[in-house]
């Protein structure tokens, strides 16, 4: 299997998955109780105007026709009008998405920087105090809800120590200090989410390292007289990191779930708050748009992982096993 075939295959999978994503989104949001026409025109609208609007929105059509119409529109990036804001959904999302991306990328980066070395150390010092400490740290990180991390950080670092702002988002272009201000606002939310993401990446790094360290080529590297540092980093880690890439991509996508809660805690005006607004005001087109865009983030990060995977693994880069 060449690199090209591999990527064609992955994109093929992605397309099929995306189709199911739209289907699930459509089904879930269309069994929502409540008449969209009533939602738009209000409870006092006349039956005739409701009928007219239903016909206009295509709500009289069979569900599958509605789905196909919706899908076709979606394909042209037309996600309809937001009921709450009266603006195109696509524009609303594109306005908020970069802010959430910033948060998710920062949180994931924080988690990776922390968890890769910890995972390697835990594997090398298997069952020793360092390993136990790392795994305890992981348990605590993954077991405390993100919003609690957030509240505690606000209490300690913002309220008590006054090191960082309690919340909000300032774009670099609007602040005096440019990016510095943005980053000061970013630190607390990104780290509180980062802790939750660390545990899993660390555990995968550890078990992947353990597996590689037990493999024959590592034994041969030792038999060649290589120093332990070379054995661990050059030989074992380079192989161990490959499956971890997938996990990191998954955690990045998981972060997009976390932002729904986290943006609420830190008053961060991004996708999470937008989604929550859509839910609270039953703004179905907006909710559909948000869900699909978030799912797209998951799939794109997965695709990125596949590409990286292929880049790091020569068995994929230069054709398969013989």
């Amino acid at each position: 299997m060449s690199m090209l075939s591999y990527l064609v295959r992955r994109v093929g999978f992605l397309a099929v998955t995306l189709l199911f994503v739209t289907l699930i989104t459509f089904v879930v949001t269309n069994v929502l109780p409540g008449d969209v026409a009533v939602l738009i025109l209000g409870p006092n609208a006349s039956e005739a105007s409701l009928q007219a609007l239903r016909a206009d929105l295509g709500l009289n059509q069979p569900l599958w026709v509605q789905y196909l119409d919706w899908l076709w529109a979606l394909f042209q990036l037309d996600m309809g009008q937001s009921l709450r804001f009266g603006e195109p959904v696509w524009g609303l999302i594109m306005d908020k998405l970069p802010r959430s991306l910033l948060l998710a990328v920062a949180a994931t980066a924080f988690a990776v920087v922390l968890s890769l070395p910890l995972g390697v150390i835990a594997a090398v010092k298997q069952n020793e105090p360092a390993d136990v400490a790392a795994s305890m740290f992981g348990f605590v990180g993954v077991s405390i809800p993100i919003f609690l991390w957030g509240l505690v950080f606000i209490l300690v670092f913002a309220v008590w120590l006054n090191l960082f702002p309690t919340g909000g988002f300032v774009a670099p272009s609007q602040a005096e200090n440019g990016w510095m201000t943005t980053i000061r606002h970013l630190v607390l939310p990104a780290t509180s989410m980062g802790f939750a993401l660390t545990a899993y990446v660390m555990r995968m790094t550890r078990s992947s390292m353990l597996e590689e360290l037990g493999d024959e080529y590592v034994k041969l590297a030792r038999a060649k007289g290589m120093s332990e540092r070379v054995v661990v980093i050059r030989h074992a880690f380079r192989n161990a990191v490959i499956p971890v890439i997938t996990v990191i991509a998954f955690q990045f996508a998981y972060a997009f779930g976390g932002i729904v809660v986290l943006e609420q805690v830190f008053f961060w005006p991004g996708m999470g708050k937008l989604t929550l607004t859509a839910i609270q005001s039953r703004d179905i087109p907006l909710l559909q748009g948000c869900i699909i865009v978030v799912a797209m983030m998951y799939m794109l990060s997965n695709l990125a992982a596949d590409v990286l995977y292929a880049y790091f693994d020569p068995r994929i880069r230069y054709g398969g096993e013989n």
């Binding site: 999978f13 099929v16 998955t17 199911f20 929502l32 929550l276 839910i279 039953r282 909710l287």
Partner: peptide, 22 residues
Amino acid sequence: MRVMDAAMAFPPILLALTVMVV
């Protein structure tokens, strides 16, 4: 598995929230 993949493309909290709205 493609269906399961698609279901897993939604972050758990977000999917749960949507279902809760329903």
